[in-house]
């Protein structure tokens, strides 16, 4: 880059043209076109038109912006902090993979799945269950008792119970999907954000209790009690988490910040 600038320093008009980073070796990689007749990559790109031209101009601007930010910054190291996938993550993952594959092969050899009775439409089995990971969804289908009857509709329900169950599924998944847009900010650890950690614990316990509700025929417990516990336990867990984290928070944040300020003083 500096070499290019020194060559274009001679004439003022040339310098004007070089405001966007020099004419040759446009990408700053130090690669010079083989001779005058071969267009540089930039020149080839500049011949494009329309949307691709716009895209290219935007990329140029973004790159320049990054460069400006980098030169402005006091930090020598990059400021974005993430763990590189290669090689750090991949090497450790590959080591764990061999254990993992061994585990699956061992399980597969030791515990083959059994085959049930063949399908028989005329005989409803006593226990109908999906696979375990769908219990929560199956449990949400059984929320009929929570479906409000509206006085406005003369005691009618707005939705059929089973529609209510399907909508409950959509609401749960939808809520999880928009979490990043509800919880913003730099806090990462549960102690730094007790409320959202409590929401998470609520969710985990609710997933467990709603799964238990879905298999209520198999659980030796009064079904009304089970229904109440399904909604009570998550709140208990959530409140406990919130209280514990909130009380841990003072001391913890102090320690964390002290270490950070020592290593990485604020500007």
């Amino acid at each position: 880059m500096s070499e290019n600038e020194s060559t274009t320093d001679g004439t003022g008009s040339e310098r004007e043209a070089a405001t966007d980073g020099g004419r040759k070796a446009a990408d700053g990689s130090g690669i010079v076109a083989p001779d005058d007749e071969t267009p540089t990559w930039r020149e080839r790109k500049e011949r494009t038109q329309g949307l691709s031209q716009l895209t290219y101009e935007y990329f140029e601007r973004a790159r320049r912006e990054d460069q400006d930010l980098r030169t402005e910054s006091d930090y020598v190291e990059r400021d974005v902090l993430a763990f590189p996938v290669w090689p750090h993550e991949m090497i450790r993952n590959l080591a764990l993979t061999s254990f993992f594959v061994g585990m699956i092969i061992f399980l597969a050899a030791a515990l083959p799945p059994h085959i049930g009775a063949p399908a028989n439409p005329s005989q409803t089995p006593a226990v109908i269950l999906p696979d375990w990971y769908l219990y929560w969804s199956f449990g949400l289908l059984k929320l009929g008792p929570l479906n409000p009857d509206l006085a406005l509709l003369g005691g009618q329900k707005l939705m059929a119970d089973r529609t209510y169950g399907v909508v409950a599924n959509l609401v749960v998944v939808g809520f999880i999907a928009i979490v990043p847009f509800l919880n913003k900010g730099a806090a990462r650890r549960p102690v730094e954000q007790p409320f959202w950690a409590a929401v998470g614990v609520f969710g985990v316990i609710f997933a467990a209790t709603i799964s238990a509700l879905s298999v209520k025929n198999l659980i030796p417990m009064d079904s009304h009690l089970l229904f109440d516990l399904t909604f009570l336990l998550p709140f208990v867990g959530g409140f406990l988490t919130y209280a514990v984290l909130k009380s841990m928070r003072e001391g913890y944040m102090f320690e964390l910040n002290r270490r950070y300020y020592r290593l990485r003083p604020p500007k």
Binding site: I115, A119, P125, I128, L129, P130, L134, R162
Partner: peptide, 27 residues
């Protein structure tokens, strides 16, 4: 998992499929 669960066409598969149809119908 659900579609795979249905493939053996045993009792569990059949009645899980039944639940699936009812879920779909209640959309």
């Amino acid at each position: 998992g659900y579609t795979g669960y249905l493939l053996p066409w045993d009792q569990l598969a059949f009645w899980a499929g039944q639940i699936g149809v009812e879920m779909a119908l209640s959309v």
